[in-house]
Design a protein around this nucleic acid. Structure first.
Length: 209
DNA sequence: CTGACGATTCACT
DNA sequence: GTGAATCGTCAGC
């Protein structure tokens, strides 16, 4: 594995996160690199699975109906910050807040392919060997990168947690849209094709191929 | 203050 | 396929 360190200039610019269409951003994030640098430990992986949450009009979103609570307040911030919340009392799920201030769009990062700091990821997750379960599924992604609810509100333009474009391109034909996972409660909104995945990638959650 | 439950994962049958 | 883990959040009293 080639050791790469991403330069500041590789970071996605603020304009990327401020785009109006959350699905466009979710699709564009596929193939980008999610980087965390906590306690001087760098870990990074290529994003292979995302889910868009379309604000107040999306029943699957925490901000459905304009719901505004202490937890979801950060979703109403201007795009380009992290929203991390605890699920089932165990899992910390990492989301990217997008669009302008007061439009609560967010994108859940559900799967990445490890690139850098794999030893640290193994240590954080308590796993012994690299396999496709290390960073498959949103809970595992956060665990491997050391992301916790306390990181909510971090700017993605800062140096601790950010997303970079290293020039790698996934063929558009390999990126497919499907319904989201675990949102059956959302009625017809559960059927929307707001989940984007890399076809046949082993780090995409769901049934094995 | 209390109780119900979740954008999940993993071990076990 | 089923169920437990485990706790912050939120609605309701």
């Amino acid at each position: 594995m080639k050791a790469i360190t991403f330069r500041h200039s590789d970071k996605l610019p603020i304009e990327f996160y401020r785009q109006k269409n959350v699905c466009t951003i979710a699709r564009a994030l596929i193939g980008k690199v999610l980087v965390s640098v906590f306690n001087n430990i760098e870990a990074a992986g290529r994003i292979v699975e995302t889910e868009a949450y379309n604000g107040a009009i999306d029943k699957a979103s925490h901000a459905w109906g304009g719901r505004r609570t202490n937890r979801t307040e950060i979703m109403y911030a201007a795009g380009g910050v992290a929203y991390v919340y605890l699920c089932y009392g165990i899992h910390h799920l990492f989301n990217v807040v997008t669009n302008e201030k007061d439009t609560p769009h967010a994108i859940l990062i559900r799967g990445i392919e490890p690139l850098i700091g794999i030893d640290h990821m193994l240590q954080r997750t308590g796993k012994l060997r690299l396999d496709n379960t290390l960073t498959r599924g949103p809970g595992n992604v956060s665990k491997a990168l050391g992301i916790y609810t306390q990181h909510t509100g971090l700017s993605l333009l800062d140096d601790e947690l950010y997303i970079a474009d290293d020039g790698f391109r996934i063929k558009p034909s390999q990126i497919i849209a499907t319904p989201r996972i675990g949102v059956d409660y959302a009625g017809k909104d559960a059927l929307l094709p707001y989940r984007f995945i890399v076809k046949d990638n082993p780090y995409v959650s769901g049934k094995k191929s």
